Amino acid sequence: MARGSDTKARAQAVARELFLRQGVRQTSLQEIADRLGITKPALYYHFASREELVRSIVQPLIDDGDAFVAELESRPPRGPRPLLEGYFDFHFKHREVVALVVRELVALADLGLVDRVLDWRLRLAALLVGEDPSLADATRATVALGGLADCVLVFADEPLDALRTAAVDAACAALGA
């Protein structure tokens, strides 16, 4: 069983790399199997379809995101900084999958995975600026959350601590906090 789990994890890693480089729709299961040195039927043993493989790569992001937002809603932080720090850390932990989501937005939207991510943003924005914010406040929250998430991708080669501080400071500034 450990060997099967190893093959499954290796398949996800190879698929993630190929999906990022050439796109989900442009990557065949045969190509993934070839890179793994296994047959396509052996890959089908672990994943019934490309969609199932994509879901298996994105699902940990979705599960962690749901848990992250639910935790914040159950115990709202005092002030925006703790929420924004947690949001940065969440994106940093999942940066490869976040990059895949950004690159393959249309393909992942077709699988229904993007709606969950957009829902998180709305729920987090409500925690930052309230349930019925003005347009200005809603815009600030959108810029803060979106900009913070983008920093993880755009400045991927920067030292983590420096990037975290700069990104969270910028997000707080966008909120006027």
Rank of each mutant, 00 (worst) to 15 (best):
A9R: 08
R10D: 14
A11Y: 05
Q12E: 15
A15S: 12
E17W: 05
E17T: 13
E17A: 15
F19S: 05
Q22D: 14
Q22Y: 10
G23V: 12
V24Y: 11
R25Y: 14
T27D: 07
S28T: 14
L29E: 06
Q30A: 08
E31R: 05
E31G: 03
A33K: 03
D34F: 08
D34E: 14
R35H: 11
R35Q: 14
L36C: 03
L36K: 01
L36P: 01
T39S: 15
K40Q: 15
K40A: 15
P41W: 12
P41E: 12
P41G: 11
P41M: 10
H46T: 08
F47P: 04
F47N: 05
A48L: 09
E51R: 01
E51N: 08
E52W: 07
L53R: 01
R55M: 12
S56F: 11
Q59G: 02
D64F: 11
D66A: 08
A67K: 06
A67E: 15
F68C: 09
A70M: 13
L72W: 15
L72D: 05
S74Y: 00
R75T: 13
R75F: 09
P76V: 05
P77G: 02
P77I: 07
R78E: 14
G79A: 04
R81D: 02
P82F: 10
L84I: 05
G86D: 10
G86H: 06
Y87R: 01
Y87T: 01
F88E: 03
K93P: 03
H94T: 10
H94I: 12
E96G: 08
V98L: 14
R103T: 10
E104L: 00
L105N: 03
L105V: 11
L108R: 01
D110Q: 07
L111V: 08
L113N: 11
D115V: 10
D115F: 12
R121T: 09
L122M: 10
R123S: 06
R123V: 10
A126E: 15
G130E: 06
E131F: 08
A136I: 07
D137K: 04
A138K: 00
T142G: 05
V143Y: 11
V143W: 12
A144R: 00
L145I: 07
G147E: 07
G147D: 06
A149M: 08
D150Q: 08
L153T: 12
L153V: 13
V154L: 15
P159M: 09
L160G: 00
A162F: 05
A162Q: 09
L163K: 00
D169Q: 03
A170D: 11
A170N: 09
A171M: 04
A174Q: 02
L175E: 09
